[in-house]
Design a protein around this nucleic acid. Structure first.
Length: 495
DNA sequence: TGAAATGTTGGGGCG
DNA sequence: ACGCCCCAACATTTC
């Protein structure tokens, strides 16, 4: 029995038509359901790059979602403007009694949503934000004292305990069935039309050439591909030259894959095998490792939700006192991938040319930024935010604060990555380096991790000149490491 | 989801 | 045979 006559589902970063909590609840509650997506100018206008990969990805995904909903007799209204104005306005125009959407945890989104909630309430319309993007959110995983966790391992243990305790079995990772009755999804007015990228002031990108397929189609392909490789995930994920990671991050960012589908894969639920996390000889190491990453994701969402101050400054207040340099040249060298440290430069060029960076390299470049270049980690965070196609504020901020040792459960400040060592360990053959730093192609593998150590004779025989073909290192590892230790110790002592 | 410094051990060269 | 030194290999501690 419908409890509402007409509802509106506001799609945001959940661009699919199945296993979708807001759509599920709307269809369960209402006789008629409208669907809308807004290209929010509050977000788009702040983007610097007119060829932003994310806008193109979203545009492709929204197009496919609209088609999928049309096949079910409905359709997606696609608007371009300020969401905080347009959603309440549309809800009033359509005469809906309730608006459903997936809850967002980022400070700016929460501010917008609070505004929308207020306006809807003033219009007598019920706002119904629901959990959609994570397995457990907000207060679902707390310490025995009822406080949010600030350390990952106990959080993870409590998360797993909660998962096992959830009844009916694993309801939180169960598909939300969407069974629209005929005519329940409302068709669109004839004049409704999808705005083009150009009409919104954006340009197409080379996403397709990079193998980035938007929408549920792209998500399905990636998930199926990773399902074939997940058992090797633990052993292969740290090597950027190898196809070892899931490449699902962009699909998780925009909801073209459901996080619950990811959890089902990690738990082995689609194969009828024993759930990961149980100790046994045949423990699926790859699946456990990947589930761990999904738990990190939930963890950082919860952290930003509970501690919004982390969005703009160090989670640990003592590091407000951390002394950083202001050095535009060093910043630019890092951004452009010309620091003279090959693995760092290869990673930054991967980011610049593809909008993606391998996770191991996110740690290496962030550590180098904070502990070698001695710059304010927030500048690095902002650069990633502008470039990453899978950018998610919670994970990005959490990762940067981890690397800069300013965060909750962060890397201790004295753990400083050696960029040469990391290179030798995780790109031993220099394969990844040569892919993105072609000027080092001729340098022998033995020296490719630290080309300034190339002996003159060998340099001559391979025709490589440091400073001409590739920059000398802009900072010295040992010097900067010692300086970082000094500054961090001073800040920690003050606090 | 480190790395470097320092400490310990034991084999082998040598006088 | 024995003490001594060197140093690799590994372990521990410190940053």
């Amino acid at each position: 029995m419908p409890i509402t006559d007409t509802a509106l589902v506001w799609f945001r970063r959940d661009l699919r038509d199945h296993d979708h909590a807001p759509l599920h609840h709307a269809l369960a509650d209402a006789a008629k359901v409208h669907c809308v997506f807004v290209f929010d100018t509050e977000i788009l206008d702040a983007l610097e790059d007119r060829a932003d990969r994310r806008v193109a990805f979203i545009h492709g995904s929204v197009t496919e979602l609209d088609e999928a909903l049309r096949k079910q007799g409905g359709g997606l209204r696609v608007l371009h403007g300020r969401a905080r104005d347009l959603i309440p306005q549309l809800a009033r125009e359509l005469g809906v009694q309730a608006v459903y959407w997936g809850r967002d945890y980022e400070p700016a989104a929460r501010d917008r949503d609070a505004d929308v909630i207020l306006q809807l309430q003033q219009a007598g319309i019920e706002p119904r934000p629901v959990k959609e993007h994570v397995i457990f959110e907000r207060d679902e995983v707390l310490t025995l004292a009822g406080k949010p966790f600030t350390v990952f391992t106990p959080y993870k243990n409590a998360w797993l305990k909660r998962l096992r305790a959830t009844e009916p079995p694993l309801i939180d990772v169960t598909v939300f069935p969407v069974e629209a009755k005929p005519g329940q999804l409302r068709a669109l007015p004839a004049d409704t039309r999808m705005p083009s990228l150009a009409e919104m002031g954006f340009e197409p990108t080379n996403n397709a050439a990079l193998g980035i397929t938007p929408g549920m189609t792209g998500g399905r392909e990636r998930l199926a591909d990773f399902a074939e490789r997940i058992d090797g995930y633990k052993d292969r994920r740290d090597f950027p030259a190898v196809k070892g990671v899931s490449y699902l991050s962009v699909h998780l960012r925009f909801g073209t894959v459901s996080v619950r589908a990811c959890a089902r894969l990690a738990l082995g639920l689609d194969e009828g095998q024993a759930p990961a996390g149980s100790a046994s000889d045949s423990a699926p190491e790859g699946k456990i490792a990947w589930l761990n990453e999904l738990i990190w994701r939930d963890f950082y969402f919860a952290i930003l939700h509970h501690f919004p101050h982390a969005a703009t400054g160090p989670f640990k207040p003592e590091y407000e006192a951390l002394v950083t340099d202001q050095d535009a040249e060093r910043l630019a060298a890092w951004q452009e991938g010309r620091t003279g440290y090959p693995l760092v430069d290869a990673a930054m060029r991967q980011l610049n040319t593809t909008g993606y960076m391998h996770n191991r390299l996110r740690m290496v470049t962030a550590s180098f930024f904070a502990k070698h270049l001695l710059l304010d980690w927030r500048l690095g965070e902002a650069y990633f935010a502008g470039k990453l196609i899978d950018f998610d504020q919670s994970a990005n901020n959490g990762g940067w604060q981890w690397a800069a040792s300013t965060g909750c459960d962060a890397q201790p400040y004295f753990r400083i990555f050696n960029p040469i060592n990391q290179s030798e360990k995780f790109d031993a053959e220099g394969k990844f380096i040569r892919r993105y730093v072609p000027e080092l192609t001729k340098v022998p593998t033995k020296y490719i991790h630290a080309p300034w150590t190339l002996p003159p004779l060998e340099a001559q025989s391979c025709g490589f000149v440091l400073g001409r073909d590739y920059p000398a290192p802009i900072v010295d590892h040992a010097t900067q490491r010692a300086e970082a230790l000094k500054r961090y110790a001073a800040a920690a002592k003050k606090g």
